[in-house]
């Protein structure tokens, strides 16, 4: 449903943040994107969100090109980015101003219920914990009725318990709606717990290094042998991606890239 072809992004300062990325995301799939910092994950997400323009290549959703923010694509940023002057319900309804009031209220109530924040509808963002704020951000993106949800390291600022809780919310949302999800993370456990497919990226220039299918049934247990096996594979791929020279030019003396 999301087709990315030969996508490249070179910033004004000449930095090649993405080079020739090809990726197809299937409807209803959860794709996790992992990689060290600086390998272009955020750049990729911003291009998918239509917030930046690619230098070359195309993005299409159901055949329609994505050049600006697209109604079928919802975005959750790394920070909640809630509007501090609006209460939770109004924040969730922020993208729904074109709808009649009754439908808007219904959608907001539904989205809040799905992230378990119904009883906090009238509170201000300042009075919520970090995890609750991020749940509001997810509800806000979800309420607008996207088909694809993009999340860029959405849980990286949260503690492990809160994170596990948010994984559960995200998965139940996904299960109930058949949403397609693309999530960036630097947490291998998070990727393995959530994703159907993990894309490993490497830097300089940013591109796809490897792709790992996670064929584990849900719900997944953090300590199960299956999860641990995939985690090991993923760690190995990440390690490999971090050693750029070794793979591309094997004839060079091994010590050079130190």
């Amino acid at each position: 449903m999301l087709a990315i072809e030969r996508l490249s992004k070179t910033y004004a300062d000449g930095k090649r943040a993405l080079a020739e990325v090809d990726l197809d995301v299937r409807r209803g799939e959860i794709v996790a994107i992992v990689g060290g910092s600086g390998c272009g994950k955020t750049t990729l997400m911003r291009l998918l969100a239509g917030l930046d323009r690619p230098s070359a290549g195309t993005i299409a959703i159901d055949g329609e090109p994505v050049r600006d923010p697209h109604p079928k694509i919802g975005v959750v940023f790394q920070e909640p980015r809630l509007l501090p002057w609006l209460d939770v319900a109004r924040n969730v309804g922020f993208g729904l101003s074109r709808l009649p009031a009754a439908e808007r209220a219904a959608r907001v109530a539904d989205a809040l219920a799905r992230v378990g924040l119904s009883e906090h509808a009238e509170r201000l963002p300042r009075d919520l914990s970090g995890g609750q704020q991020q749940r509001v951000a997810i509800a806000r993106a979800f309420a607008a009725g996207p088909e694809v949800l993009l999340l860029d390291e959405p849980f990286s600022a949260l503690d492990a318990f809160t994170r596990a809780d948010l994984h559960a919310h995200l998965l139940s949302l996904w299960k109930a709606t058949g949403l397609t999800i693309v999530i960036v993370t630097h947490d291998v456990a998070e990727a393995v717990m959530l994703a159907d497919r993990v894309i490993v990226m490497r830097p300089d220039p940013g591109r796809i290094h490897d792709e790992i299918e996670v064929l584990l049934a849900r719900p997944r247990e953090r300590a199960s042998p299956g999860v641990e096996a995939v985690s090991r594979t993923l760690y190995a791929a990440l390690d490999e991606a971090r050693r750029p020279a070794a793979r591309e030019s094997e004839q060079e003396p091994a010590g050079l890239w130190w």
Partner: peptide, 20 residues
Amino acid sequence: KLLEVSRVFRLSRVETARRI
């Protein structure tokens, strides 16, 4: 970052001014 929120929800310039 707040202005990007308004872009994501495709608000017009006038609406962005009024609401953000």
